[in-house]
Amino acid sequence: MSIINDGEYKLTAKLGNVKIVLQLLKAVNFKEYATFCVSANGMKITVEEAKCMQASAYIPVQLFEEFILTEDVIFRICLDSLIETLSMLGYRLYTPDNPILLHILYKRVGYPVGILIERNGIVVDCSLKSYDPDEILDFDLDPEAVVNKVLLQSELLKDIFAELDNSSIYLELLLSPKSPYFMISTKGTIGECHIELPHNTELIETFQCKKESKSKYLLKHMGRAMKAVPFSNKVSLRTNEAGILCFQYMIKTDNDVNCFIEYYVSPVINDDDDDD
């Protein structure tokens, strides 16, 4: 299958591996719609909720087999439908010698996004309606503003995420230059739980803590932000003075390209009910 690009399309992209794309999309799929920003570096898919949580998945240009972009484009499409389309040919059966190919085509504003997936000669052709993009919030966590930074292997977080107490509304994250260093706490109807993480094992690559910070986040938000833990390799946690937390996951693909997922979570402030 080949696509003739007669200059009509602003974007023509071809991917040999649907599985990784699906994984990335599903990890940010907490809202129905997503904004796609395509630039020469690759594709960035952003999902936002109520200006207090944002998730972005990055597909670098190296992952594409073919990537022709005449000018930077930005559009919004229904993420649910896209995921449904990509799952149509059964991505779980994916093997390196029996791949599912993906083509993405986009003409210009007002035109639908064309999605073609192919496997063993079976072609699924889909057109997804494109919408005008929303403004994307810039959480702006520049390196100088970062107070605390932890870089760790995802393995360490895997079990913690699975065992979090769902009856709790909030999750408290404590980072401190002195003991207990790194602690996650929940407080639910059926008890309190404090999880102390080590700060100096081989699973922690960097632990930079300038001063103690203690912030409360909605457990719902944290649950989403930890969705990428199971299939990622490394994760970095950064917080700024205001308590905005950024998770950045690094995901290694089969052909040694690194994909990234980023989550920004804003803290819960002035919560008097729980400070008894």
Binding site: E155, I190, C193, I195, P198
Partner: peptide
Amino acid sequence: TNLCFILKYKNNIIKTHLLP
């Protein structure tokens, strides 16, 4: 007011459960 369970994991994680 709490019954305390402290679990020590192999990867140095320490979990403290305070059960009311």
